[in-house]
Write a protein that binds this DNA or RNA. Structure first.
Lengths: 196, 196, 196, 196
DNA sequence: CATGAATGAGTTTTCATTCAT
DNA sequence: GATGAATGAAAACTCATTCAT
């Protein structure tokens, strides 16, 4: 394997290690040694692949966002041709988001962690801003395939994203009985599609 | 001043100091000395008034929740008599929530901080669960004054709370231009009231 | 009650509180608040009755030694007249020492604590020196009632005291099976009496 | 020097530093910084080589016991062949114990420190139990070479060890004039050998 | 006399980072 | 490139003692 790819491989390992660590402990309480041990890499070497602990985090956030972006795009690619009715396709897309993103508890946990860091760290904040802005725009474009009203689409896309975000939060901390997240999402989805 | 109230006064001071600190730094990066300095209290004394740093946090969360609960209840008390139409009253209540809670940026920041801690700390998680369950129930009762459909009310209350939570998150990090939070909330509010 | 006796009463309470505390924790790990709480006295008041934590300890050591000295002397007083044969009386005295002192586990623990402090604290060391010197002299006088040989008596008294001290140590830490302290003491006692 | 031996070297240094420190101050009053300074090692590094302060102590106790065990065994090795009469050999062995162990004041001090810690710390207690049980067994085996009576040997070995322990205590705190430890030990030794 | 609030030095421990090998 | 030894700042927490009320 070339140097380049050894480097890339190691960085990938470290990203995945941080991902695992964040499921256990907040970033602040995760030590460089924890990450190294999880990645099965010498802890001194982390500073060879990344400048600092913050640098690891910043790269991780990009990695995570990229991962889910391409995950969603791949799904779009492989499903867009199979459905004729744009409304059906929108419904299927929303279903995908619900199950793979909104109700993905690990992901939700990690996103809260990132939101929290973003509040006090402007570099992280920027990355999060960019990601959510793009995400809302993606939703917007999807809606525009079903309605011609730009104002409505813009507003709905923000509202929908916000609603998903809130459900994602609730589904981690509240009892499933209290929120019945799945059914609730389904209900709102139908109302929303009717509305268009 | 009596001993009893010195005690209470100091604890109050400490709560407010932590509040200020959390607007600047995450809890983990806020040292006991930071809190003490902000409260203008000797740092050793913090362990006189509270058992540990975690104890301060737990008390703070209760204090914060209690503060906003009574804030909301007071508003209800002083406005419930002035409005005849329950729908008007619901609209006014929602307006109050939007402006004083959902779009209160300081509060939103601190709540994200608490959410994050809750993920890894079960005591904090319990407190948050209780607070949100009560909050959703409050919203539910308000809705039940306007509709007789219990299932709808239950689901709407969770959905509304989640939507507010999401908007609250977005309003801290995203550009006001992107989300136009105020107008968005207003729009959804009207749709929502029409729906009932 | 007069002031004098209130003062004396409180000091007595504190001595007994320290005694209880030392059965739980070493002196260094016993805080002034622990002692005060055990004595059911305000912790600030301890400095009214004693100058410092060390002062409490010094007084306690004297109190403890005095207590066991008079305990032993009272026994001597009430039993000396009932026995004619000095050898029988010596045997009975040794029995008393074995059961009430050497094999008194609480006392042994506290004495190890005091020995340890004495090594590094000259004031405590002095008190311990005095107490053991007197103790050895008491044993010496008892032996002299049975033998006329002064050199033998002097040497035996030190040896006997040392042996008791060692058994006292062993009986706290080693299994009763390993040392069979009671039987061992009895055995040696008989050898010792035969020897005289 | 290899990494492996740097590790071992440092641990050794730390053990010796604690040994020196314990001659000055009790363990509780010896700070991690004191030990580090004595070992001429950075204080943060102590936690690199040992888990905690208690871990250092536990390792030290093992190190100390091991040191004296092998010290004694080496002496046995090099002297066992030169003496024909087992009684002479026993006498010589006891002489060795008297001078190198019982009357070794530094060692006695440190052992009192360890005894004291053992009372309140079960891990230390275990180590001490094991060490003394082995020690008594060693003495027992030595006596069995001179007498066939197992019960006597067992009892004598405990008694002898206890006596030495007591003399060791006394020799630290009492005046040499009062106890004449050397002569006393010699006397008892002869009585003891006669007895066998 | 009694109370308990306040002080701040001191403790153990953690950890990102550096750097010699 | 890889390793792990070393550094020292900073954290939470404890506590004897003082002193105003």
């Amino acid at each position: 394997m070339s140097r380049r790819s050894v480097q890339a491989e190691r960085r990938q390992q470290i990203m995945e290690a941080l991902h695992k660590c964040l499921l256990e402990k907040p970033f602040d309480q995760t030590s460089i040694k924890d990450i190294a041990a999880t990645a099965q890499i010498n802890y001194g070497a982390l500073h060879y692949y990344f400048e600092s602990k913050e640098d690891i985090l910043l790269n991780y956030i990009e990695y995570l966002i990229e991962r889910y972006k391409s995950f969603f795009e791949e799904w779009i690619q492989s499903n867009s041709s199979s459905m004729q009715d744009p409304k059906d396709f929108l419904r299927a897309s929303i279903d995908f988001v619900h199950h793979k993103i909104t109700l993905n508890q690990d992901l939700s946990k990690i996103f809260i962690e990132i939101w929290e860091i973003a509040i006090y760290n402007s570099k992280v904040k920027e990355k999060l801003q960019k990601a959510y802005t793009e995400w809302i725009e993606t939703v917007n474009l999807a809606i525009l395939k079903v309605t011609a009203n730009k104002t409505t689409a813009a507003r709905l896309s923000v509202g929908l994203a916000a609603f998903w975000e809130g459900i994602s939060l609730f589904s981690i901390i509240l009892d499933e009985k209290t929120i019945e997240a799945g059914a609730l999402l389904k209900d709102f989805q139908e109302q929303f599609l009717k509305f268009l």
